[in-house]
Design a protein around this nucleic acid. Structure first.
Length: 936
RNA sequence: GCCCGGGUGGCGGAAUUGGUAGACGCGCUGGAUUCAAAAUCCAGUUCUUUCGGGAGUGCGGGUUCGAUUCCCGCCCCGGGUACCA
C-alpha cells in the first residue's frame, strides 16, 4: 500500500472522535499540563495558513506532554462577539448571531482537518448566554469591590461601607477618584443617591463622565489600546475626544502589581517591555506652586525634584481648569485664541506636529515655593491634560522640551548643574552635581532627589509620588453585538441585577444602528426595561410604572469575554459557578500560552488584571493567568506580479520589464509555479485577459516578479490550509509550518518547500514496507548503527522540546529517516521509537504506523522515548585540524588518546609538515572531541 | 527620538557553552530509470580562482590560539512607543 494520507487521516480522525481520545478529565495521579492557544475571532474570511501556526505548535507541545505522562488540558473556543459581524449586520440586516454561527462552522471544519488534539467538549463561545452569564457575574464582582491600598488587594465594598459608617473616609487608604473627606456623621446623613455617588468613586468598575476616544465612523468609544496612530485599530477611522458617561475599569489600581508581576513571568522580553512601557511608572514628587495674587495652587508632578531651583517658568495644558481663572485681562484674548486653536487640533495633528513650538503667556505668575521668586505661567500644548496633573514646572536646563520652549519665547534659562554647559542643549543626564540650589548644592542627583523630597515634605509644599501612564479602561461600547450589562437605572442610579436572574440576554432589535436621538442600538429594543418586582425584562409600554426601570444601553467591549475564557475551559458547563473550585485548583493557570504579541496592551493586560482581582476575592488560587507565553511570528504572503506595458497593454515578463513603461499587477499565486506564470490559466482567470498578449523571456516562459507582504485577499497571495491538506495531507502541512523556521520569527510563506516534507513522510512509510507496498518489519535485535541514528534523534527532539524549538526537530527526524533508509533498517524497536517522536508533529501517520507495528490503541498513550547515551558513544573522532584558525584537513583519531598523544599524532603527519613549512609550531591547542589548532 | 527583535548561499533556515560556517529542505545542474512524463534513485551545488589557493555570516574596529557567537562604533530591516514632565 502506498502512503495514502487522505484515507489514513480520515480514519484516525474518526477514531479519535469515537474514542474521545482528547477529552480531558481530572486525574490527581498525574501532573497536569494546561496548554492554550489564543482563541480566534471567527471572521468571514476563514483561516489562512498563517492562523494555525501557533495552534500547531501548541498542539505539538500538548501531545508531547501527554506522551511524557501529563494529564493534558488543551481546549479551543471562539471570541465570537465583535465588530465585523455587527458591521455586516448593519449593511445586510442579517443578525450577527447568524453570520457568526456560519463563520464559526467554517472555522471548525477547517480546524478539524488539521488534526488538532482539542477537547471540543469544552468549547466556549463568548457570545453564548451561558458563557456571558459569567462575564456579567464578574462585572458585578468588580462593581461590588474596591481596592484597599493597605491590604494591597481588592476588598468587598461592604467593608468600605461599614468603615464609612463608623469612621467616615479619613482613615481609608483606597484607590479612588473621591477627594473630599467626610466623617461618619456626614456619611450617615447622606441620602441614598449621595452615598451611591461616593461609592461609585471607589468601585473597581464605575460609571463616570470621562474623556473618551469617540469614533464617529464606528459609532462607539474605544479604549486606548484599540487606537493605533490616532485612528481606530479596526477600520482606521478618525477618533476624537468626547466627554461621556461611561463604565470604566479601575485597572490603575493594579498598576504596580501588573508591573511587578512581569518579573515572574516566562514571557518574551518584547511583550513584557511593551506592558512595562504601557504601565509607564515614574517615580518623583508632586510639588505645589502658589499662584501670585490668587488663593489657587498649581500642583505639578516631576521626576526631578532635585532640579527645583532650575525652574524658570510653568506651563499648563491649554485645557487646565485654572487657566481661565488666573489669566489676566491683558492676555485674555490671546489665551482664548490659543485654547481654541489647541482644542481644534485632533489627537493626530498634535502627534504629527511635535516640532512646532507653541504656547501663550497667561499674564499670571507663580511663586517658587523655595526661593519665593515670581515665575511666569504659560500654557502650551506640549503639556498634556491627561498625564500627571496637566501642569509642569519647567526646568529648561534639564529638559529639552522646556529648553526649546524657553529659547523660543526668550525665557531666561538658569543652570543648576555644576561644570556642565547648557549653551547648546539641555543637560538631561541623570547624573552629576547640583549647583546654584541652596541646600542641594554639591549633591549627586540621587542624593539631591532624596534631600529635595525631604525638604518639600517638611515644608508641606510637596511629597514623594509615583505616577503611572496607565489609564483606567473604558468598558462601555455603543454597539449591539456584545455582552449586555446586568444594570438598570433607578432614578438615574445604576443598580445591578441579582445573580439568580443572570444571564441578561441580548434583546432583539430591528436595527443595529443608533436610535434617532443618538442612543446606542439597544435603545431600539422593545423589551429593555427591568421590572424589580417580577425581576424580568419588560416592554417599553410599561416604562412609566414605578418598579420598571430602563436598562443600560451600552454593551461590554470585546475584551470582556476574552479576559477570563481560559478559566471557563476548566469547567465549561457549570451552571452554579464560573468555575468550580476543585477544577481551578487542579488545572490552575496556563502552563504554555501561544498567541500573537499584538495583544500585549489589550487582552494580555486585561486578563492579568481580572485574574489578580479574582484571586484577591478568593475565587481562583493564582494571580497570573499565563505562566509561559510564546508569540508566534506572522506568516507573510509571497505575492506574484505581472507587468503590463502601459502603451500596448501587453504583459511583459519580469526580465524584460525595464525595457517598457509597465504597471505592476498582483496575480493569483495559485496560477504561478516557481515564478513561472501559467499563461493559459491566466488568460482564463478574467475575461479581459482572454486575448492577452505576452512578451516572454528568451526561453519562452513568462516569469513573474515577487514580493513578501502581508497575506490578504486583495493581494491574491492567500494560501488556504484546506487546499494543502487536500493535496499533501494535514501531517505534511503541520510539519511544514514548523519546518519553515523558528516559531517566533515572522517569515514568508512559500509553497515550494512543502513537497520536501511530504517526501520525508513517504520515505518514512517506505521504511515499513517493501517495494510492493507490503508491510515488512523485522523483530530482530536492532543493530548499533540504527540504534545510534534513532537515539541521536531522541536526544535532539528532547532538547528541542525543552527549549520550545520545533523547526530543527523536523530536520533531525529527516536525517534519521535518511540514515535508516541507507541502512535498510526495518527494525521494529528502532522504528517504534521514531514513530513516537513523530507523533506530536504528524499524529495521523504516527497512529497508522503505530498500529502497523502491532500496537493496540492510540499512539497518544505511548511513552516518550528516552535517549540511551550508551548508543551514542563513539570510539573515534574526526578532528578538524586548523592552522592559525583555518581548517586545513581532517584526521580520524581514537577517542582514548590523551591531549599530548593527539598533538604528537597530528604534528607527525605529513600534511601538517606541509602547513608548518619547516617551522616549529608556536602553540598547539587540542580540545578533545572538538578541534586541533596549530599556531605557526 | 527612545525601547525591543533581527541581518548567514538563488530561497526558508542550521550551528544549544567561543571550537569543522552553510545541517535539513526547496530550487537549480548533471546522470540512472522510462516509449514519454510524473514519481523515485544517484552525484554536484557559498563566492571566486591562473585549480596552488584566496575570500566569506550587514559594515568598521577590538578581545582570543580560534568569533555567526563576546566587546565598542556605525548602517539597514521589522515590531512597540511617542511631547509622559
Amino acid at each position: 500500500m502506498e502512503y495514502n494520507f487522505n484515507e489514513i487521516e480520515k480514519k484516525w480522525r474518526k477514531y479519535w472522535q469515537e474514542n474521545n481520545t482528547y477529552v480531558a478529565k481530572i486525574d490527581s495521579e498525574k501532573p497536569k499540563y494546561y496548554g492554550l492557544s489564543m482563541f480566534p475571532y471567527p471572521s468571514g474570511a476563514g483561516l489562512h495558513v498563517g492562523h494555525p501556526l501557533g495552534y500547531i505548535a501548541s498542539d505539538i507541545y500538548a501531545r508531547y506532554k501527554r506522551l511524557k505522562g501529563f494529564n493534558v488540558l488543551h481546549p479551543m473556543g471562539y471570541d465570537s462577539f465583535g465588530l465585523p459581524a455587527e458591521q455586516y449586520a448593519i449593511q445586510t440586516g442579517q443578525h450577527p448571531a447568524v453570520t457568526t454561527e456560519e463563520n464559526l462552522k467554517r472555522y471548525r471544519s477547517q480546524l478539524d482537518k488539521i488534526g488538532f488534539s482539542f477537547d471540543w467538549s469544552r468549547e466556549v463561545r463568548t457570545s453564548d448566554p451561558q458563557y456571558y452569564k459569567w462575564t456579567q457575574w464578574i462585572f458585578k464582582q468588580l462593581f461590588a469591590a474596591y481596592y484597599c491600598n493597605d491590604a494591597s488587594k481588592a476588598m468587598p465594598i461592604e467593608n468600605l461601607v461599614s468603615v464609612f459608617e463608623k469612621e467616615g473616609n479619613t482613615s481609608v487608604n483606597a484607590v479612588t477618584a473621591y477627594e473630599t473627606e467626610f466623617s461618619a456623621e456626614e456619611w450617615n446623613a447622606f441620602d441614598a443617591k449621595q452615598k451611591d455617588a461616593v461609592l461609585m468613586d471607589y468601585r473597581l468598575t464605575y460609571l463616570a463622565d470621562s474623556w473618551v476616544n469617540w469614533c464617529p465612523a464606528l459609532g462607539t468609544v474605544l479604549a486606548n489600546d484599540e487606537i493605533v496612530n490616532g485612528v481606530s485599530e479596526r477600520g482606521g477611522h478618525p477618533v476624537e475626544q468626547k466627554l461621556m458617561r461611561q463604565w470604566s475599569m479601575r485597572i490603575t489600581a493594579y498598576a504596580e502589581r501588573l508591573l511587578k508581576g512581569l518579573d515572574k513571568l516566562d514571557w518574551s522580553d518584547a511583550v513584557k517591555d511593551i506592558q512595562r512601557n504601557w504601565i509607564g511608572k515614574s517615580v518623583g514628587a508632586s510639588v505645589n506652586f502658589a499662584v501670585a495674587d490668587h488663593d489657587e495652587e498649581i500642583q505639578v508632578f516631576t521626576t526631578r525634584p532635585d532640579t527645583i531651583y532650575g525652574v524658570s517658568f510653568m506651563v499648563l495644558a491649554p485645557e487646565h481648569e485654572l487657566v481661565t481663572q488666573i489669566t489676566t485681562d491683558e492676555y485674555k484674548d490671546e489665551v482664548n485664541a490659543y485654547q481654541q486653536k489647541a482644542g481644534l487640533k485632533s489627537e493626530r495633528d498634535r502627534m504629527a506636529d511635535t516640532k512646532t513650538i507653541s504656547g501663550q503667556f497667561t499674564g499670571a505668575y507663580a511663586v517658587h515655593p523655595l526661593s519665593g521668586e515670581k515665575i511666569q505661567i504659560w500654557i502650551g500644548d506640549y503639556v498634556l491634560a491627561s498625564y500627571g496633573t496637566g501642569a509642569v514646572m519647567a526646568v529648561p536646563c534639564g529638559d529639552q522640551r522646556d529648553y526649546d520652549f524657553a529659547k523660543h519665547f526668550e525665557i531666561p534659562i538658569k543652570n543648576i548643574f555644576a561644570d556642565v554647559s547648557i549653551e547648546e542643549e539641555a543637560y538631561t543626564e541623570k547624573k552629576g552635581k547640583i549647583a546654584n540650589s541652596d541646600f542641594l548644592n554639591g549633591l549627586e542627583v540621587a542624593e539631591a532627589i532624596q534631600k529635595a523630597i525631604e525638604v518639600l515634605e517638611d515644608k508641606k509644599i510637596g511629597k514623594a509620588k509615583t505616577n503611572y501612564r496607565l489609564r483606567d479602561a473604558v468598558f462601555s461600547r455603543q454597539r449591539y453585538w456584545g455582552e449586555p450589562f446586568p444594570v438598570y437605572y433607578d432614578n438615574g442610579v445604576a443598580k445591578t441585577i441579582e445573580d439568580q436572574f443572570l444571564p441578561i440576554e441580548l434583546p432583539e432589535v430591528d436595527k443595529y444602528l443608533p436610535t434617532p436621538d443618538g442612543k446606542p442600538p439597544l435603545g431600539n429594543a422593545d423589551n429593555w426595561f427591568w421590572d424589580t418586582e417580577k425581576n424580568e425584562l419588560v416592554g417599553r409600554e410599561r416604562a412609566e410604572e414605578e418598579h420598571v426601570h430602563p436598562m443600560e444601553l451600552n454593551t461590554m467591549p470585546g475584551w470582556a469575554g476574552s479576559s477570563w475564557y481560559f478559566l471557563r475551559y476548566m469547567d465549561p458547563h457549570n451552571e452554579k459557578a464560573f468555575v468550580a473550585k476543585e477544577k481551578v485548583d487542579y488545572w490552575s493557570n496556563v502552563d504554555l500560552y501561544i498567541g500573537g504579541a499584538e495583544h500585549a496592551t489589550g487582552h494580555l493586560l486585561y486578563s492579568r488584571f481580572w485574574s489578580m482581582f479574582l484571586n484577591d476575592m478568593g475565587h481562583i488560587p493564582f494571580e497570573e493567568p499565563f505562566k509561559k507565553m510564546i508569540n508566534q511570528g506572522m506568516i507573510l504572503g509571497r505575492s506574484s506580479f505581472v507587468y503590463r506595458d502601459k502603451a500596448s497593454g501587453k504583459f511583459i515578463s519580469f526580465g524584460k520589464r525595464k525595457e517598457y513603461k509597465v504597471a505592476r499587477l498582483h496575480v493569483d499565486i495559485n496560477i504561478v509555479d516557481n515564478d513561472k506564470l501559467d499563461i493559459e490559466a491566466f488568460k482564463a482567470s478574467r475575461e479581459e485577459y482572454a486575448n492577452a498578449e505576452f512578451i516572454l523571456e528568451d526561453d519562452g516562459t513568462y516569469i513573474c516578479g515577487n514580493e513578501v507582504e502581508k497575506m490578504s485577499k486583495s493581494k491574491f497571495n492567500v494560501q488556504n490550509p484546506d487546499d494543502l491538506v487536500e493535496k499533501y495531507g494535514a501531517d505534511t502541512l503541520r510539519m511544514y509550518e514548523m519546518f519553515l523556521g523558528p516559531i517566533e520569527q515572522a517569515k514568508p510563506w512559500d509553497i515550494k518547500g512543502i513537497n520536501g516534507v511530504n517526501n520525508f513522510l513517504r520515505k518514512l512509510w517506505r521504511l515499513f514496507h517493501d517495494q510492493d507496498g507490503n508491510v515488512n518489519l523485522s523483530d530482530d535485535k536492532a543493530d548499533a548503527k540504527a540504534l545510534k541514528s534513532v537515539h541521536k534523534t531522541i536526544k535532539k527532539a528532547q532538547e528541542d522540546m525543552d527549549r520550545y524549538v520545533f523547526n530543527t526537530s523536523v530536520s533531525a527526524m529527516m536525517i534519521c529517516v535518511n540514515e535508516l533508509t541507507e541502512q535498510k533498517c526495518n527494525n521494529k524497536t528502532v522504528l517504534q521509537d521514531l514513530v513516537v517522536l513523530l507523533a506530536p508533529y504528524a499524529p495521523h501517520i504516527a497512529e497508522e504506523l503505530w498500529s502497523i507495528l502491532g500496537n493496540e490503541g492510540s499512539v497518544n498513550d505511548a511513552t516518550y522515548p528516552v535517549c540511551n547515551e550508551d548508543y551514542l558513544v563513539e570510539d573515534a573522532f574526526e578532528y578538524p585540524v586548523s592552522f592559525n584558525g583555518k581548517m586545513r584537513f581532517k584526521v580520524e583519531l581514537p577517542n582514548n588518546l590523551s591531549k599530548e598523544d593527539i598533538e604528537k599524532e597530528v604534528l607527525a603527519m605529513e600534511k601538517s609538515q606541509k602547513y608548518l613549512e619547516g617551522k616549529a609550531p608556536k602553540k598547539v591547542i587540542v580540545v578533545p572531541g572538538r578541534i586541533v589548532n596549530i599556531v605557526v
